[in-house]
Design a binder for these strands. Structure first.
Length: 455
RNA sequence: CGGGGCGUAGCGCAGCCUGGUAGCGCGGCGGUUUUGGGAACCGCAGGUCGUAGGUUCGAAUCCUAUCGCCCCGACCA
């Protein structure tokens, strides 16, 4: 993309309403525009990041055998009356009436609707296990939205629902989700720690939240510092292997890590050596639940088991806050000059800065780089504006592309361009051809989607 | 919902107390000189002062209502 043809309304000054760094940077980088309290339009740069995160979540969900669907944002209140949550949910749920005076709601979550789909079409244990998920806009009418997309009223979320014959199978689904979530966050360049949490209005027996440590997090967290050493890494996961998924789950949840909702000072002191006790803040970027037959029973989601008995299915649900992750990643990865995107979610993989637009040699070298990098399948932002160097550098730093190639007459006279890492600031001079090879090599190592499997 | 604050040009703000021709910086447009980390100068454009009503000869300014937004608290993926 040539910057002169892009829509990137960057701001030099910080809008007054933004309090935390991710909100300020998203506004300044022209990623979002507030439409009303807690509701945002996503401008090209922000939308690109949102889509990249979404793509990773889709890939990892399908790798784990989960099936994508799409359910409506507006739902009839009737289903919610069946489960009892229409009254239980409270003012957080946005209620709407249509022209016939029927009650609708803007979905905050979709257990009822997905259970309705299930009960209409599944009646045999042979169709299990089944996990359906969607990535869709949700709405919670927060009393006080704040922190930009980190706590909006409208938010983009992956929500998934597993249906299993037995409690044991459903617990495997729980473990499978925990593992796939770990992989999802790691791919985004994030460390998200599973912590024992409270189940809130979803209900249920077992639940973990995934938290990204950040000073601006809204949850207070308590953990054993050793949990931050654990990585999933490149290990090979078979999502159908119950024992393996359970082992990974246990590995990641054995050490003390809890939010303030479930924190127990006495247990903390007993289980964690004093030098490893940490009290910090975290951003919740996902949560998994096992809730058994809480919805299947009242809503009649039954299957016939091998013995001919009609039994309610065991269920769980799982969420990843896609739009919130955009903010969370920025909170976890920025400096005083702007955002520093992890390579996997960067809106563009590399930027080209032409220091002397209109100079024949500089223009030609930039065109060569731009065409060459695009030919390697990379998404490039070429700053071809007639701007001074300082302004171009400031824009690139602000929007946080992981790599920058700087092209100017001075370097070209010696046959070199400069490749700079946004994260480390380290710069290296090389020929344009070498720069193309280097950047293409960096991104060739990125994990690719693998073939889909059936559950 | 309780407490507090703010709505004046695209963004950041002053002006309001003490009523009298609506300002500054950034940004935008044109031009000249510039050009390796947000350049200088000249010129230009851009605002029904959130909205409605009231007081007044006259309202951005005073009064009332209302809408919106932000902060603290309770709540929260």
């Amino acid at each position: 993309m040539r910057l002169t043809r892009y829509f990137l309304p960057v701001l030099k000054e910080t809008p007054a309403e933004a309090q935390i760094v991710s909100h300020r940077l998203m506004l300044r980088a022209g990623m979002i525009k507030q439409a009303s309290a807690g509701i945002y339009s996503w401008l090209p740069l922000g939308y690109k990041v949102l889509r990249r995160i979404e793509a990773i979540v889709h890939e990892e969900q399908q790798r784990a055998g989960h099936l994508p669907i799409l359910m409506p944002t507006l739902q009839s209140a009737d289903l919610w009356r069946e489960s009892g949550r229409y009254d239980a949910y409270g003012a957080e749920m946005l209620r709407i009436k249509d022209r016939h005076d029927r009650d609708l709601l803007y979905t905050p979550t979709a257990e009822e609707l997905v259970t309705d789909i299930f009960r209409a079409h599944v009646s045999s244990y042979k169709d299990l296990p089944l996990t359906l998920y969607q990535i869709q806009w949700k709405f919670r009418d927060e009393i006080r939205p704040r922190f930009g997309v980190m706590r909006g009223r409208e938010f983009y979320m992956k929500d998934g629902y597993n249906f299993d014959l037995t409690r044991e199978d459903a617990l495997h689904a729980y473990n499978r989700h925990l593992v796939s979530y770990l992989r999802t966050y790691e791919r985004m360049g994030l460390q998200a720690i599973p912590m024992r949490a409270d189940s809130g209005p979803i209900g249920g027996e077992d639940t973990h939240e995934f938290l990204v440590l950040a000073e601006t997090g809204e949850s207070e967290v308590f953990y054993d510092s050793a949990v931050t050493e654990i990585r999933l890494g490149a290990r090979d996961i078979d999502y159908d292997d119950h024992a393996q998924c359970r082992a990974v789950m246990e590995e990641f949840t054995a050490l003390y890590a809890r939010t303030d909702e479930t924190h127990d000072e006495a247990e903390f002191a007993a289980q964690v050596p004093p030098e490893r006790q940490r009290r910090a803040r975290g951003i919740e970027v996902g949560q998994i639940f096992y809730f058994g037959t809480k919805y299947s029973e009242p809503m009649g989601a039954l299957v016939t088991d091998a013995d001919g008995n009609r039994v309610p299915v065991h269920m769980g649900s799982h969420g990843i806050g896609i739009s919130r992750l955009v903010g969370a990643i920025i909170e976890a990865s920025h400096d005083e000059n702007g955002i520093i995107w992890p390579e996997a979610v960067a809106p563009f993989q590399c930027g080209i800065v032409n220091l002397r637009q209109g100079d024949a040699a500089a223009d030609a070298a930039c065109e060569t780089l731009y065409a060459g990098l695009k030919a390697r399948g990379l998404d490039i932002l070429y700053d071809d504006r007639d701007e001074r160097a300082g302004g171009k550098f400031a824009t690139m730093d602000l929007i946080g592309l992981p790599w920058r190639i700087t092209v100017g007459p001075r370097g070209l006279a010696r046959g070199v361009v400069e490749l700079t890492s946004r994260r480390t600031g380290e710069a290296e001079e090389m020929s344009a051809e070498a720069a193309i090879d280097r950047v293409a090599g960096i991104f060739a190592a990125e994990p690719r989607p693998c073939s889909e499997r059936s559950p």
